[in-house]
Amino acid sequence: MAIRLKSRWFREGPQRSAAERGGVAAVASWRLGIEMVKRLQRAGFGIEVGAGYFQVLKEVAIFLALLADRQVHARQSPEERDEFTVGMVRHLAATYAESATEWLPPRRADGPDWADDFLAAWNTVAPTYADFDSDAVSGEPEIAFVRHFAWRLEPLLPAADRVWVIDQVMSIEVPEAAQALRRTLAGVFDETPRRARPATAATGD
């Protein structure tokens, strides 16, 4: 089933900053990530409710942020790309923290919060994808890009599921998500003025 997301995000008005666009991309990516985890569960992968679910969701969200970073690089200067990605990751960290706070046991008051946990994971994981890219036209990530993502998911799943996850991710999950994300980003960066709606004539007796 194709994933559908909103394709036009901004009303007419001042040009949005790269960070604002990153925040919007984060909203879409979070929804894509949740849907991907749900599909994995429906496909029979043993993703436990609770901590295991959030471990997988965090890995998925980081992958989607990296994919968005690759998909927009041709649209922005290096400085704007950095601003976009930082804005996206910070928004994802805040969303992750809000959700984890609601569903998981409290963190220690003197320790890192859930947003810190997400950002620490980003800082560790993102460099491992440094050599991977996506196609400039189709937005499809390189095979090695997707395989690396699947390899990172493997240890988060029960042993019996690990043999199947690479095929599931490469043939179903990522192609769906990559196209949905590319359509969303096209809307995020679309500055074409909207058509004015025709005026409705007033009627009366």
Rank of each mutant, 00 (worst) to 15 (best):
A144Y: 00
A51Q: 05
D190I: 10
S17M: 04
M170Y: 13
P14M: 03
L5K: 02
A109G: 14
D205T: 09
A115D: 05
W151H: 11
A25S: 15
R31T: 12
A26W: 01
I34K: 13
Y129T: 08
I143F: 02
A144G: 14
S171Q: 14
P112I: 10
V163I: 08
W114Y: 10
R70F: 00
P193S: 08
A115W: 00
Y96S: 09
P112G: 15
L181R: 04
R21I: 07
M88D: 09
T203D: 06
Y96E: 06
W114F: 14
K6V: 15
R182G: 14
G50L: 05
V165Y: 00
W30K: 12
A28T: 10
A93H: 02
D135P: 03
P105I: 08
W30N: 11
Q179S: 15
R21A: 08
I3S: 12
A74L: 11
E59F: 05
A150R: 02
R70M: 03
D161G: 13
E176R: 12
L185M: 04
E79V: 06
A159G: 12
R162P: 11
R162S: 07
Q71W: 01
K6E: 15
Q179M: 10
W114G: 07
V188H: 00
G52M: 04
Q71I: 02
I34W: 06
D205M: 08
F189P: 08
R108E: 13
E79Q: 07
A201C: 05
R182Q: 09
I62D: 06
I172G: 04
Q41V: 14
W30R: 13
I34M: 13
V27G: 08
R39S: 15
T101Y: 06
R11E: 11
W164H: 10
P175S: 13
L185V: 03
E83S: 14
E140L: 13
R197N: 14
E142L: 00
T95N: 00
N123W: 03
M170Q: 15
S17C: 08
L57S: 05
I34N: 08
V86A: 06
E35M: 12
S7C: 12
L32V: 15
V188D: 03
A51I: 04
V169R: 00
D82I: 11
I3G: 02
G50V: 08
W103F: 11
W103H: 09
Y96D: 06
E176Q: 15
Q55Y: 02
I166F: 01
L153V: 13
H73R: 15
T85H: 00
R107Q: 07
R107K: 05
A180R: 03
W164T: 11
I166Y: 02
H148D: 05
P175E: 04
D131G: 07
I47H: 01
L57A: 03
R21L: 03
Q41P: 04
V72S: 06
T101L: 09
D205H: 10
A126P: 02
V89G: 04
A19N: 01
T184S: 09
M36K: 04
D131P: 00
S77G: 05
V24S: 14
G23Q: 10
Q168E: 15
R21P: 03
I143V: 02
